[in-house]
Simulated assay, not measured.
Amino acid sequence: MRRTPWNIFFHVLVGLEVCVLSHPDPAMVGRCGVVIDETARTLVLRDKSGKVFRVTKRDAIFEFRVGRVSVIAEGELIVGRVEERLKRLEKGRGLVVRYVLREGRWYTRVEAPGENV
C-alpha cells in the first residue's frame, strides 16, 4: 500500500522527510532531515550535510512531507513500533485527519479523537 497523508502513521516512517517543529530540547527545534531509522521511542535522521542525529518522539511535534503535502503530528501518536500503532487504532483510539491553514499553506494535521484544535 502506498503511503499517503492519511495512512503514513501505519507504515514505517523510514524514507520520509521530517522537520522538528517543537521539542523539549531547544537544540532539536528546526532540525530537518530524512528518517533513516525508527525505534519505538526515537527517529534517526540524516540532514542535508550528512550529519546523523536521534530525536525522541515523545513530547515533540513533527512535520512530515508526503509528496507535496505536509503532515503535522504530535510525537505521542507515533510512539511505538508500527505494530503497536496499529493495535492502538484497533482498540478504538483511531486518528482524526484535519486540514489546517497555517501561514498561507494547507497542512494535514493528524490527532487523536477528542482533541481540540
Rank of each mutant, 00 (worst) to 15 (best):
E38G: 06
I78T: 10
V12F: 12
T4Y: 09
F64R: 08
T56P: 01
N7F: 14
T56S: 05
G92R: 14
F53V: 05
S70Y: 06
A27P: 02
S70P: 00
G67L: 04
C19D: 01
P113D: 14
V96K: 14
V82R: 10
L77E: 10
V35D: 05
I78F: 11
D37C: 03
V117L: 09
V18H: 05
L45M: 01
G30N: 02
V100N: 03
R93Y: 13
D59C: 02
E17I: 06
I36D: 00
C32F: 06
V69E: 06
R98T: 10
V44I: 08
N7Y: 13
F64I: 07
W6S: 11
L16I: 06
E38T: 08
V79M: 08
E63A: 03
A112R: 15
L89R: 10
L45W: 00
F9K: 04
A112S: 14
G92Y: 15
L86N: 08
S70R: 12
R41C: 01
E90V: 14
V55N: 01
R68C: 02
R68E: 09
G67Y: 11
G80D: 12
I61F: 03
L16A: 01
T108F: 15
A73G: 09
K91G: 06
V18P: 03
A73Q: 09
G67M: 05
G75H: 07
P26L: 03
E38P: 03
P26T: 04
V117F: 11
A60R: 07
L89E: 12
G15P: 14
I36C: 01
V69C: 01
R81N: 11
T39Q: 04
G94W: 09
V55W: 06
E115F: 14
R105F: 10
H11N: 06
P24C: 01
L21E: 01
G104T: 10
G104A: 12
G94Y: 12
G80F: 13
H23E: 08
D25G: 01
S49N: 08
D25W: 04
V117R: 15
V66S: 00
D59Q: 07
C32A: 13
F10W: 06
E63S: 04
E38F: 11
G104Y: 13
T4P: 04
V71D: 00
E38Y: 07
P113S: 15
V97S: 13
M1R: 11
G50T: 14
V82I: 14
V12M: 10
P5W: 15
V34P: 02
V69I: 12
R88W: 10
E17P: 08
E63N: 04
G15F: 14
T42A: 02
T56K: 07
V18G: 02
E74H: 12
K91P: 06
E76M: 06
K48R: 13
L95M: 11
L43R: 05
A112Y: 15
E76A: 04
S49H: 08
C32K: 12
E17K: 05
L16V: 02
V97H: 13
P113T: 09
F64C: 08
E115T: 15
N7I: 13
G30E: 01
L13Q: 10
R54P: 00
L43A: 01
M1Y: 10
R102G: 06
V18W: 03
Y107D: 15
E76C: 08
T42I: 04
G92H: 14
G33W: 03
R46G: 00
R81G: 09
Y107N: 12
